[in-house]
């Protein structure tokens, strides 16, 4: 579920409509519907104004349920998740077969790919040097959240 409530309204402009346009619409739609009326020459770009790209919007599907983790170790390099990467973990997503998840094993967090097939429950690494964690009778898997994104910065010395 997404919420638009906290979205601020776009740059104040004079609307040609007498009433405020759709208030429940996402801000992006409101922006497309508004026009500027100005006394001088209108800027040819004003009809195309958009907010800049927002990485939060791109990475976070559900803000109150999203948490960031730092990855340690090489167990997921095959999925392009490296030591030191930050991952976005969404607790509201239901974990399914083949999702990358953060799970709690022996009281610690682990990041692995979830395998749920033919009655087998496993947390599989993406690196042949590591072994899968299996869950037999009587041991329960605790998924903390589903990994929905990864971010990494590269040092640039300039």
């Amino acid at each position: 579920m997404r919420s638009h409530a906290q979205h601020t309204s776009p740059v104040p402009t004079l609307s040609q409509a007498p009433e405020p346009l759709a208030t429940d619409a996402p801000a992006a739609e409101i922006r497309l519907l508004s026009h500027r009326i100005s006394a001088g020459f209108p800027s040819p770009a004003s009809d195309y104004v958009e907010d800049g790209l927002d990485l939060n919007e791109y990475l976070v599907r559900n803000k109150p349920a999203s948490f960031m983790f730092t990855v340690k170790g090489d167990s997921m390099t095959g999925a392009s998740i490296e030591d030191g990467d930050k991952v976005v973990v969404d607790r509201s997503a239901r974990a399914q077969h083949n999702d990358i998840v953060v799970a709690v094993v022996d009281g610690e967090y682990t990041i692995k790919r979830l395998y749920l097939r033919d009655g087998h429950v496993e947390l599989r690494p993406e690196n042949p040097a590591f072994e899968a964690i299996t869950f037999g009778e009587g041991s329960e898997l605790e998924v903390w959240g589903v990994v929905v994104g990864v971010v990494r910065r590269y040092p640039v010395a300039r």
Binding site: F67, M68, F69, T70, V71, K72, G73, S75, K86, V87, V102, E108, Y109, T110, I111
Partner: peptide, 13 residues
């Protein structure tokens, strides 16, 4: 401060 500082995030291995 697990949720507000980049250098204090929880760690997953």
């Amino acid at each position: 401060r697990y949720t507000t500082r980049w250098d204090e995030l929880p760690v997953a291995r």
